[in-house]
Amino acid sequence: MTIELRIDDAIVTAEQGDTIRDVAARHGVEIPTLCWAANLTPVNVCRLCVVEVEGSRPLVPACSRPVEADMVVSTNSHRVRTSRRMVLELLASSVDLDRAEPELLDQIEEYGARPERFAAGATKHAPVKQQDELYVRDYQRCVLCYKCVEACGDDAQHTFAISVAGRGFDAHISTEFDTALPDSACVYCGNCIAVCPTGALTPLTEFVRREAGEWRPDQQSVTRTVCAFCGVGCNLDLHVQDGEVVKVTSPADHDITQGNLCIKGRFGWQHLR
């Protein structure tokens, strides 16, 4: 059913069931997100996408709130901007964002976030975990967006090797009893890595290059091809730097994989080296 609502200064039409974010995006109104992804169920935990909806006392998360007829939505009011700025300050003052997606760093700029105001505050401390030759988990970069948990769990892989453990500021991503990854349920599909927005989870090949200062996304080309292993036909995006494949991902908008791969698809390319 088609309905009408107001987003900022425009009356727009939408389908029942659309989220505010969907409709806004369709009408060219960009709402920042961090924990949202096209191939995951919205968990609305980062609260970066909050918008003002007339009649609602708290702000509402645009990523998950379905539109209603005659809704009046403000996506960029002072209240909205203050909340976004604070969310960014809170995150940036507690975790290391220097390897985050460029969009997040741009938002810190755009909203005038000044994380240094909380410079004396607690930060997330965690030693880098490298327990095998494929993954690096650097949880001092983790913003607890839940994406990895969702990708490992019921949004894709159904392996559930990781979960959020603990509570409050101490909440963290963990295997049971912090079991080393190779001994956990992990099957190294890397679907967690694929959705991590902050560089907390990276393939070892990328981590090593980053540590050496040799990770140069601006010099990488991406070529789409099909995985060489089983007969499913997963699309692979080969990220090539200096004539070498350095990482493999899958397009989130392709209906075979929805961005997901298995260990062979994501890491099997290393036989090329």
């Binding site: 095998d132 030759e133 494929l134 992990c186 190294y188 260990i263 890491f267 290393q270 036989h271 080296r273």
Partner: peptide, 8 residues
């Protein structure tokens, strides 16, 4: 597949 370091 023997040519990538599978932890499993």
């Amino acid at each position: 597949t023997a040519r990538f370091p599978s932890p499993i």
